[in-house]
Amino acid sequence: MRLLTVKNLRKTFAQEKEAIHAVNGVSFHVDKGEIYGLIGLSGAGKSTLVRCLNLLERPDSGEIWFDGIDLTKQNEAVVREKRREMGMIFQHFNLFMRKTVEDNVAYPLRIAGRDRSESKKRAHELIDYIGLSKYARAYPAELSGGQKQRVAIARALALNPKLLLSDEATSALDPVNTELVLSMLRQVVKDFGIGIVLITHQMEVAKALCGRVAVMESGLIIEENNVETLFLSPKHAATRRLIRGVEDVFPLKHGETIVKGNIYRLGFRRESVRRPLISHISREYNVDINILAGDINVLQTGDVGYLVVSFEDIGDEEGALKALRENGVELVPLTAEDAVNHL
């Protein structure tokens, strides 16, 4: 079931001298039960984009179809109603510091006019769900970052939304708490049957959670695919740069030109990831293959591996490449500069 359809969304900020096209014509959709990742480096426009989705930021043009209506065409009262169908969590949690955990979680209910006892009951269910029952009367200042984010998740779920917007929700957390929050989000999708739009600059977050991922750069989605294909054959340098964050450090230093021959990035699917393809092909086609970098990524959908290799002292390079393709390996040719700068 389609939850959200965004069409050609644009948002420009007028700066002193020049206009900043933060979101420059973005289209995508999110289905029920799906975690849709929007990944990009800071400044790519992802935070502006997600804040446009619930109209915290008014987009300049484009359409946001949610719950059967285009939100960009609605008045404030309708937008407010629809915001209740879209929970939101933030990088810095944004809890109300002077309200207890219980009052934080009950807040959206109280604002929506639910009575005190009903709100409290629902808040306690959710606080149980996030496993923080004994902190119900505590204040956010008494909680750790991971606990704060869990409270924020409970608050975002208070009104039973259909969609959750997550803006860098784990960026301020340590690895242990990141894992905790991620598994909670995964669980939330299962238990509440919602969809999530997940903004992140960390590929490992997208890798752990998302089905489909869109890569953003300069206000545009430059590449969108399921996470497996994205890891197998990243088309753009920006994508490879983001993937690199979770891959081994490339052993070449900038400016060194020790690599001879043609360089390829080989993406291995789960069928081929464990076979000794490289040594087989090296023997068969009489090519020397120099392995420059490589790793295996464990994704939601299975394992994918990659190698960056150069073919040196060429025998039958064409034949070798053909054989690799026939074995289900994705090939992306790289220039030496690509390899040094972007991998």
């Binding site: 619930n54 915290l56 407010r80 933030f90 109300f96 510091m97």
Partner: peptide, 28 residues
């Protein structure tokens, strides 16, 4: 903090509600 106000708005609060339930209490 502007983010806290934003969280209030994202929860569905009107500006007037936001003033009474977030802005003034948080600044108390």
């Amino acid at each position: 903090d502007g983010g806290v106000l934003e969280a209030g708005l994202a929860s569905g609060a009107k500006i007037s509600q936001l003033v009474w339930t977030v802005l003034i209490p948080e600044a108390l």
